[in-house]
Design a protein around this nucleic acid. Structure first.
Lengths: 245, 245
DNA sequence: GACTTTTAAATGTCAGACAATTAAAATCTG
DNA sequence: CAGATTTTAATTGTCTGACATTTAAAAGTC
């Protein structure tokens, strides 16, 4: 674990990189304790604040955790799926909000990924997943629901569908795509009529998944994607008309 | 932008969280300059080292960048797809290496996601994507190639297939899944015979994509997944036999 | 032997200082 | 006055030393 002392720029970044490489490379294993800040400072020949900045960088990526007190220190973190979800969602959300990704592009990606899960979900979903889907459909039919709440329920519904595939790696990948879409979806105003149409498609989808009918589930997702894009298109057209008129 | 002074634990984490929320919430826009470290220290009523630790946390997530000198400071970063790729790959790799994800689970996820891309790639791939795929197939046929180099070429081939879909959001999501598989794939020893089989499937896949034949491409991916899992299964069986014998 | 107290190690935070960098302002020069 | 040069000031990067806080282990006590 070494740094380049000739490059005096960004010492803390170099140190963080060195430790990160050691973790990824397996030289530091899960739950292993790193040397104390003072020892690291000595090893890298820098001051303790510099070491601390490096450690905070790693902590921000959930690579390490710290404990105070005697026999405390920095420990290599087991990156849990839960942590990874959170990071993935943050990154995906920022990526979409900062890069002028078109609604169509994001929508296409989301449904393409979801269609990758649905056949597996039709095979493996548990009663729990199905119950969640039904419960969310029920919620979506409540009259007083705000657009935001409707969207949130939509996310929960699709999340249950994805989790039904029983593959944590898929769930992890999809969490970002589905959740990151929510801010974009929130721009859409859902009329009573469009909510009805979406609920009908959701019901059809849940029925197909319950029956283990992967092909029907897939076709419903295609229709849902089409409908979502139509809705978004209408919103954009209305805005343009407003701006010009 | 406020923190809870009554909670004396993890001041730098609280400050980082407050700034992060401001960025995600749109209160700080891309390329906007944050207050100087001294001003932030004053605002949050903490010392400059504490502020610096908070800023390094944000820098680790590529949320900000810093510039030295007059009119320097910390600026909100535009999260580029390139940055996001890198983070996604790091996270996915660690997730797989630290969580005892079975080869089958990872493999299933990878091919499910890839199959989500291939129909789009068959429609939209450019000549460049196709050329990359052909070039990698050619490389995979070279006799002296190490297993690692063969795997790397495999990743490049599939990366070109995914990029061919022309959807940066999909590429971003898939980069993690495909690249994170590489350490697992590197456990497999490729015989001349198995390489031949894989190259044949890759060729078939490239042909299908060139012809715009999404259905064939999909069926090839299914066969490739089956074959990959068979190869991995053989490796596992051989190891078990060795351990018991 | 069980409980309490002390101790030491470690992280968390602070204050003040200096170095390095950089853009802008001030100055010089033709 | 225009352009080049020097100075200046602002800002991040780093260091030193100190103290506060937390916590587990060691020492002491009944």
């Amino acid at each position: 674990m070494k740094i380049d002392p000739s490059n005096p720029a960004d010492l803390s970044a170099q140190i963080a990189g060195a430790i990160r490489d050691a973790i990824i490379g397996g030289d530091l294993i899960v739950d292993e304790r790193l040397p104390s800040e003072a020892e690291l400072a000595d090893h890298f020949d820098v001051s303790r604040p510099t070491v601390r900045e490096a450690l905070k960088r790693l902590a921000a990526q959930s690579l390490i955790r710290t404990q105070r007190g005697a026999s405390g220190g920095a420990f290599v973190n087991r990156l849990s799926f839960e942590n990874a979800y959170a990071q993935q969602i943050t990154t995906s959300t920022l990526l979409l909000s900062m890069n002028a990704v078109s609604f169509d592009t994001a929508c296409e990606a989301r449904f393409a990924l979801e269609r990758a899960c649905s056949p597996l979900s039709a095979l493996r979903r548990t009663a729990d997943h199905l119950a969640t889907m039904r419960a969310e459909i029920h919620r979506q039919q409540q009259p007083g629901l705000t657009d935001e709440a409707f969207c949130a329920s939509d996310v929960a519904f699709h999340r249950a569908l994805v989790d039904g595939a029983g593959n944590p790696v898929l769930s992890y990948q999809l969490a970002g795509a589905v959740e990151a879409m929510q801010p974009l979806m929130n721009m859409i105003t859902f009329t009573a009529r469009s909510r009805e149409a979406i609920v009908a498609l959701h019901t059809e989808l849940a029925d197909a998944v319950e029956a283990g009918d992967a092909q029907t589930a897939d076709s419903v997702l295609v229709r849902l994607e089409d409908y979502t894009r139509t809705l978004a298109g209408d919103v954009m057209a209305a805005r343009t008309a407003k701006a010009n008129g």
